[in-house]
Nucleic acid binder design. Sequence first.
DNA 1: CTTGACCTTAGACTTAACTCCAAGGTTTAC
DNA 2: GTAAACCTTGGAGTTAAGTCTAAGGTCAAG
Lengths: 128, 128
Amino acid sequence: MRIGRLAEASGVSRDTLRYYEKQGLIRADRWPNGYRDYPEGMVELVRLIRQGQSLGFSLKEIGALVQGLGGGLSQVEVEQLLRGKLAEIDARMKELSNLRAVVARRLAEACPLGLDAPGSLDPKRVAS
Amino acid sequence: MRIGRLAEASGVSRDTLRYYEKQGLIRADRWPNGYRDYPEGMVELVRLIRQGQSLGFSLKEIGALVQGLGGGLSQVEVEQLLRGKLAEIDARMKELSNLRAVVARRLAEACPLGLDAPGSLDPKRVAS
DNA sequence: CTTGACCTTAGACTTAACTCCAAGGTTTAC
DNA sequence: GTAAACCTTGGAGTTAAGTCTAAGGTCAAG
């Protein structure tokens, strides 16, 4: 699979894929002519990278995880890395559920009667 | 409350608070000498902004929400904005739970025996 | 054998979100 | 009253994550 095909399949630009390679997030074999050659499964990995990113993880963090799994880390280190990531994901889910509650509460306030209760998000009326 | 106090209480730098103001995310009254004066509740709002950010929302998105709530949007528009945000949060929670499953699976694989199953995150061994 | 659609690299440019600096005014502590 | 610790503005610099451009190589179709 050449870069254009991977770009189309994964929904990121060619430039971005080359950038990810430079950052060590993905790898590519090469044809004799220098063209990059990706395995099918790369689509999955790139999608995972984008997903991680959209959830607030930096490329560096994602890279550390991906690198760690592929690279020179020991069994124990990989395990710790994964456990750490898992804890972080759990924390983030909790935060997200808090945020959801805040937005849902504000919706409940705004929706039925137009009441303006304290604790609003409104920066002009924030509680003194 | 002056800017230094808010910075300390909310855990962001003075510069960042001024930047948020420039971007329209927060507002401040002024003392006659020009110093910014924040209400207590501002701490809460700033924390919320940081939380939203750490969950992958841009300042622009957060600003639209905060602005919308404070600003010239109609009842219906605010309601739509909030519903949209809620849907987005739900989608993100689902993604996060997917990501959690991927990491947890990899941990289960890596942990007990060092087996290398297909579907790994490893960029060097991604399925062909 | 040339046209169009691919691919390569290196490097410049862009945007978001800070972060720092300079030059100066204010307030508090001694 | 002066030194330290605040505050102000404007503007420059930084980092991450792309995005774009230039100059050129490859390949299939007509």
